[in-house]
Amino acid sequence: MTVDATTTTRSTRNDVWRRFRRNHLGVVGALIVMVLVIAAIFAPLLAPKDPAEQDLRARRTAPNAEYVLGADEFGRDILSRLIYGARASLTVAVSSVAIGLLLGSLLGSLAGYVGGWLDGLIMRLMDLFLAFPYLLLAIIIVSALGAGTFNTILAIAVWTIPAFARVARSAVLQIKERDFVTAALSLGAKEARIMGVHLLPNFAATLVVYASLYLAYAILMESALSFLGLGVQPPTASWAGMIASGRNYVTSAPHIATIPGIAIALAVLGFNLLGDGLRDALDPRSGKR
């Protein structure tokens, strides 16, 4: 009873796509994410105005014909900043989570699979990171390296590594115990085969869920750094920065902070719906129906 690895993978891939399309919320999520990515890539073509151009006389203008979503405290066009902000915010969120996911799951699965002293070492190191107040770590990184988009990404990525490592490790441990893996092992399957065929797809489902959740965290972290004045730096527009600087006008011009807030909510929603959809499609055993 040997299974051909290639055919399994191919058929899985088709199944995944079929299952994903059936999931309406997942498709909605994919659409939202697509819109954001398009906005980010084609920002210069889509934005009606220069996002950095100030008109102090038009400051805090409510939405009108000229400023479709209003103007901010410098009289900059909020719509244009929102579109350009998609760039900075998506870059920060996606790259920091990608770095965290890559390094974290590598470390975690290594720890989980190899076990023993290596497991102990890696996980104690992760504990060290987790035990450290998270904003403190970010502030130290930004203070040492200076504020800016790249260092913001780094500060957030470092913080996400231990979470991914933990998730990856526990997923690996759990899967190792599962009946089908035990069965495969007892049937004499090679370790590498087990990793590729059984562990990865299962493991990916969990990670996708976590990654989509951590995108939200990454955006929250960026907003926390912006709140302290250490996030993405002007004149670059980022959603979190827009909220942080607009929050003082909550009574006089609430649209300045509310509009980027809605953008963040939509982005998080999109990524999570997409993540859920992918998870359900990747791992038919889990989730709905």
């Binding site: 939200a216 955006i219 926390a224 909220i243 807030g261 963040i264 909510a265 929603l269």
Partner: peptide, 11 residues
């Protein structure tokens, strides 16, 4: 719940 997760707490 996602909306709750995506709003910065200071806002």
């Amino acid at each position: 719940s996602l909306a709750g997760l995506s709003m910065p707490v200071f806002w």
